[in-house]
Each structure stands twice: as structure tokens, then as C-alpha cells.
């Protein structure tokens, strides 16, 4: 059973501010979804972790674009910028 306190904690971890009006029904909804997906606990016995057939494929870390090719297009999307920097509030 998930509680409203758990939901506030998860929202904190996920960096989402929850309004009180929303927290209550989201708790009910998530509880019912977790109840449904929790059925996997009852699944059969002979499962062992195995080395998957698929593996990571890495390419060489090479430059694929011209210097500055995307700078303006990327920074254009930033809500706040100063020159070619993103502007953020102080972190420490």
C-alpha cells in the first residue's frame, strides 16, 4: 500500500511539485497501478539472471559536426542565456 507521504517523497526525488489536491488522487491511481504490476511477484521459479545476447556497441568518439555548427540553434532554445552560456541560478 503506497501512502500519500510516499508520493510526496517520490515527487521530491523526481523534482515535481505536487499540489495537495492532486496528491490524493494520484496516490489512489498509482496504488492501483502498482497493484496490477505487482503480479509479477507471483511469476514462475526457474529464472536466473543471464548474460544477455545483446551487448553495447560503441563507436569511436569522433567529431561529427563543424565547430559551432549547432551552437546558435541549441542556445536559441534556452530560456535564459548570457552570450554562449546557459544562465542558471547559483548552485552552491
Amino acid at each position: 500500500m503506497i501512502t500519500i507521504k510516499d508520493i510526496y517523497h517520490l515527487a521530491d526525488l523526481a523534482r515535481i511539485k505536487l499540489e495537495e489536491t492532486e496528491a490524493e488522487h494520484i496516490t489512489t491511481e498509482i496504488d492501483s497501478i502498482l497493484g496490477y504490476v505487482g503480479q509479477i511477484q507471483g511469476s514462475g521459479g526457474d529464472m536466473r539472471p543471464e548474460v544477455p545476447a545483446l551487448h553495447n556497441v560503441m563507436r569511436d568518439d569522433v567529431v561529427t559536426n563543424e565547430k559551432g555548427q549547432y551552437t546558435e540553434a541549441l542556445l536559441h532554445n534556452a530560456p535564459l542565456r548570457e552570450g554562449d552560456y546557459l544562465k542558471v541560478k547559483k548552485i552552491l
Binding site: 517520490l10 523526481a14 523534482r15 511539485k17 494520484i26 498509482i30 502498482l34
Partner: peptide, 30 residues
């Protein structure tokens, strides 16, 4: 402050289903 920027932006920017799935994902990975 920066934390409040995150909390408010993500609360207003994401709709209910997206928020729900982020919270479920956060739960199953915690």
C-alpha cells in the same frame, strides 16, 4: 532558487499522465 525552478517548471510543464509515469518509474527504481 534553482531547486524551485525545477519543481515548478516540471509541475506546470508536464501533464498528469507524464507525472504519473515519472513517479511510478521513480518508485520501481528506488
Amino acid at each position: 532558487n534553482l531547486l524551485q525552478d525545477y519543481l515548478k517548471t516540471r509541475a506546470q510543464g508536464f501533464g498528469p499522465e507524464v507525472r504519473r509515469r515519472i513517479l511510478i518509474g521513480t518508485y520501481v527504481l528506488s
